[in-house]
Computed example of a mutant assay.
Amino acid sequence: MKKTFTPAAAAIILALQPLPALAHPHIFAEARLEVVADAGKITEVRNVWRFDDVFSSSVLLDFDKNTNLKLDPDELKEIADTIRTSTGDYDYFTFITDNGNPVKLAVPEVFNVDFKDNQLLVFFVVKPQTAVPLKGKLSFGIYDPTFYTSIDFAKDGDLATEGDGFGACKRQVIRPDPDAVMAQNQNMMTEAFFNNPGGSDMGKLFATRLEVSC
């Protein structure tokens, strides 16, 4: 049977697709990111996303199949499955670099959603395919490469570390200046970029990130 997507499901998927002339966000979320280490190695990254009221309301309207004005467990599961599938091609919007090298991520085992105070909440855990040693310079962040969804952190404390091994490391939250990023990357600001922002890695340059140096 052919899968039919509701408007909200389509919006979730569209948020992850390279769209013409859409190099600015249409969906907004605040995030919390916790980097967890054990025995001197990064073992997992925990993510919490809280979406804006407008997008959250559209999700409620489209996934509330029994029209009881709330999202029941089966409806929440459908949303979770849709987001996990849609973000899979984009590493779940989560990036980790190990001394400048991208770290490959495993498929999340834990992926849940909830709806509280009229906002959609997404909770999930990603793990490196291979545990990453706490050595050298590591970077952690969240970004949508298509620029359709803006996911950011309200305060620096929303990028946190937990577990053994961080005591000897220096931690710093980096919030890039968009004007400076654009000025330094003028050669990438082409018509092709604005027509297909997902075709470049520019989004990572704008993303708030946690840098850990050990």
Rank of each mutant, 00 (worst) to 15 (best):
K104R: 07
D117I: 15
T94P: 05
F111A: 06
T87H: 01
E109T: 11
V113K: 00
T85Q: 10
P133S: 08
L121C: 07
I83T: 05
D117L: 14
Y90V: 14
D144I: 09
F147W: 14
K137Q: 12
G141S: 09
F147I: 11
Y143R: 03
R84M: 05
T94R: 00
F124Q: 06
V103F: 07
T82P: 02
F123L: 03
I151H: 09
E109A: 13
F95C: 00
S86T: 00
K77C: 09
Y148P: 02
N118D: 15
K116L: 15
N118C: 10
F111V: 01
K127N: 12
T97K: 03
A80D: 03
V132P: 05
G136T: 06
P128V: 02
A106Y: 02
P108H: 09
N118S: 08
Y90K: 09
A80P: 08
G136S: 05
T94A: 02
A80G: 06
V125E: 03
L121F: 15
L120G: 12
S150E: 12
V103Q: 03
D98T: 13
T87I: 01
T87V: 10
T130P: 02
K116T: 04
G88S: 09
V132T: 01
E109Q: 12
S150R: 10
F93Q: 03
D114F: 14
F140M: 10
K104D: 13
T146A: 01
T85H: 04
G88C: 06
A80M: 07
T85R: 05
K116A: 15
N112G: 11
K77V: 08
G136K: 09
K137H: 07
K104P: 08
P133E: 12
T97L: 04
N118H: 11
N99D: 15
L138Y: 13
F93G: 00
V125Y: 10
K116E: 15
E109V: 11
Y143H: 14
Y143A: 07
I79N: 03
D89L: 03
K104C: 13
N99T: 05
F115H: 08
T130C: 11
E78Q: 13
T85K: 07
L120F: 04
T130K: 15
P133Q: 07
D89A: 13
L138V: 06
S86G: 09
Y90T: 10
I151Y: 12
F147L: 03
D114K: 09
F111P: 00
V132N: 01
S139K: 14
V103E: 02
A131W: 07
F140D: 04
